[in-house]
Design a protein around this nucleic acid. Sequence first.
DNA 1: CTCAAAAGTTAGGTAGGCCTAAGTTTAAGG
DNA 2: CCTTAAACTTAGGCCTACCTAACTTTTGAG
Lengths: 252, 252
Amino acid sequence: MHARPALTGPVEDYLKAIYELESRFGAAATSDVAHALDVAPASVTGMVRRLATQGYLDHVPYRGVQLTPCGRQAALRTIRRHRILESYLTGVLGYPWDRVHDEAERLEHAASDDLIERMAAALGHPTADPHGAPIPTADGLIEEQPHRTLAELPVGETARMLRVSDKNPSLLRYLAEIALQPGAEVTMVARAPFDGPITLRIGNSEPVVGPNLAAQVLVAAMPSSGLRSADASGSLPSTAASKPKSRKPTAR
Amino acid sequence: MHARPALTGPVEDYLKAIYELESRFGAAATSDVAHALDVAPASVTGMVRRLATQGYLDHVPYRGVQLTPCGRQAALRTIRRHRILESYLTGVLGYPWDRVHDEAERLEHAASDDLIERMAAALGHPTADPHGAPIPTADGLIEEQPHRTLAELPVGETARMLRVSDKNPSLLRYLAEIALQPGAEVTMVARAPFDGPITLRIGNSEPVVGPNLAAQVLVAAMPSSGLRSADASGSLPSTAASKPKSRKPTAR
DNA sequence: CTCAAAAGTTAGGTAGGCCTAAGTTTAAGG
DNA sequence: CCTTAAACTTAGGCCTACCTAACTTTTGAG
């Protein structure tokens, strides 16, 4: 870990994307990274080799990629910068939450640590960004809340909206319209069978949304007890709310 | 002017540097640009050719370079961004004035126009940055104040401090220490002959500074009359306060 | 007016990051 | 087990922006 060279923009983006894929799927596949960064798979292979020789990740050809502690640290630093920037843009400069992602994406590579910490201080050291994503601490600790998706919420139950991806502006605009934002209380009123429309209650309104949308919204895992409640539609038989639903790339 | 491609970071830096050299010397010499950007002269030649073919400047080989209206516009846009960023960093985030330049230098290439305008609005649309440099308007108009250097101020006269370069942190720290900041009233108390030390009065203190420093500080041209006042030291015989002291590169 | 130093340019090369096209390897179905 | 599609990698280029070294032009001192 002896004084690595300063990270360039692209490198930070790769590490960040790999971190995010890894925490969702357990490992990052070349093609997923390529898709996330909108580059050709061949470009990923090349960059991954470079990052592996520099100690940021382990790469087993054809099998996937995983961050080393050092790479994870670098990724979390970038994620912290990104989320503090998003928080600052909405909290201080009045940006709508659907437009902060792109701006933060560019600024996160240019801002100094000093600037980031000044922004964090101005906000009172927030622990989550405007979309509900947790902000890693300066020394790389991140606290994930236990959660499930809104789609999984049993009919009749109420939960607190926790988080949604920052990457889809039109989704975010729509969510703002129906007041489904982090912290909001949302009740599962009804769910039509065969992946049909879902009726929610948020405050006094009862928006009807698609299952696709509901699957993208995370809600707090449990205000109360365990998770017994047989209801109509198909719900995942998975045990609890830990994420790594290992997909294909198995690295190692 | 029909929709040119988005400017990359380096390109913006070249245009900005050329603009600044041009407004100081009337034209920009290759080696001056190279020095300003800390690159080799050969690199400047190459980039200049590219910018010339793209219509941002006119280049007469061996004779210098000059911005086209289009290039000037681009340069002023970058300068506006830079100066608003500097203003915001000091005004809102509490940066000391000697540390804003580097930060702004990086951010100016990453921030969107929207962000810049939000910052300007948050500051009440300032017309000068923390070092006293005028901020061009969004449509590229810049208003230079008439000025002379502090070194030229006749003994006994008082002037308002107008401006100093943002590029020398230790100079800025020293100026802050003696309270010589834009808007401050400064009186020329005495000037030792042969480019000797200069005694000033600022508020209740009488700092003594070198002629080198005094030459870098600009003061408002005239609170009152014309400029008769024979005094000891050598003062430039130039007519008034218009700057372009044409040096070598004569372009055209 | 000459001629060397200074300033500028050309030539050729490096490195980062990307691409397409053409192989390899893996996984999955028959 | 064989075969084929999908995933991945290699090979070979391109472009930007930089460099050094060698050459040309301009300038200014004598």
